[in-house]
Design a protein around this nucleic acid. Structure first.
Lengths: 143, 143
DNA sequence: CACGGTCGGTTGAGAATCGCAACCGACAAG
DNA sequence: CTTGTCGGTTGCGATTCTCAACCGACCGTG
């Protein structure tokens, strides 16, 4: 809310070029739920098979998924998240939480910490004072 | 990574229906930088004017932006984020940070806390133990 | 050995969406 | 009275998406 100029080199746009597609987000969500195979992505999402093929291909190109043979005879492949792909979890959760807050009465799914069962929240935090922030608290500084 | 079944009612999909478009994310980013006017969105993003008009219209319909007259004679309008829209800041930051980490050498923009200038991080945290988590730590529980 | 079924795709055609450029109405400034 | 600003709309061709059919390499059943 402070600086109306942003740098030409933009990581939001760059990110959206690799993972800013509607189907891509849904593929990621599926992947976080443990889905790995072509047919399962297709069944769960109802996406057209040629598009699915295309999107998975792009995501592999961008190093977000990895295509791996899990059997030969007949040859069969699955798609697994790479570290880079798994790191999109934060984005996925952020979207999901926003949906929970504004678009559905009750959150249809709880995210819990495996170790102790605690509820998980997505938040913006100041590394200096530790406070949780929102859009109004932040300033932008070009580097 | 635990439960491969997800509820039919899905807040990720619902969220993407309202704000899952490439241009929408970019419009939001602009809005967070303080942009409010049609011409400015258009100039900054290079988006086609008919599309811009269309997207802003949808976003207003969904209550993410608010269309407000800022002068009469001639009548002129601007687009401001509502609370619901401002709450998408977390998503925007999550995308930006991922882009910073994986797509550019040095983050082109720093986000700082207005109050004390501290660096801002986006994170997933367990409300029980307070630990910062990633995709591997979380379980899914349908409600 | 023929007949289905599974999996990971490809191909082709029609519908929907996008991007580009031109235009418009209401004014303001020179 | 011409030029410029702002917030759009209109029309058209290019791109993308969806839908459905098909394919190759197998496997299991009868």
């Amino acid at each position: 809310m402070t600086n109306p100029r942003r740098p030409a080199l933009d990581s939001v746009e760059a990110a959206l070029n690799q993972a800013g597609d509607r189907w891509t987000f849904l593929l990621l969500r599926e992947a976080f739920f443990g889905v790995r195979r072509f047919v399962d992505f297709q069944r769960n999402l109802g996406v057209a098979r040629n598009l699915l093929s295309d999107r998975l291909g792009q995501l592999v190109e961008h190093g977000i998924f990895e295509r791996r043979r899990y059997q030969q005879r007949p040859e069969r492949f699955e798609y697994r998240l790479t570290d880079k792909g798994r790191d999109l979890f934060g984005v996925t959760v952020a979207i999901m939480r926003w949906g929970d807050r504004w678009l559905s009465d009750r959150p249809p799914l709880r995210l819990t910490h495996g170790a102790d069962g605690g509820e998980i929240e997505q938040e913006l935090r100041c590394t200096a004072c530790g406070e949780v922030l929102d859009a109004r608290d932040v300033h932008y500084e070009p580097t």
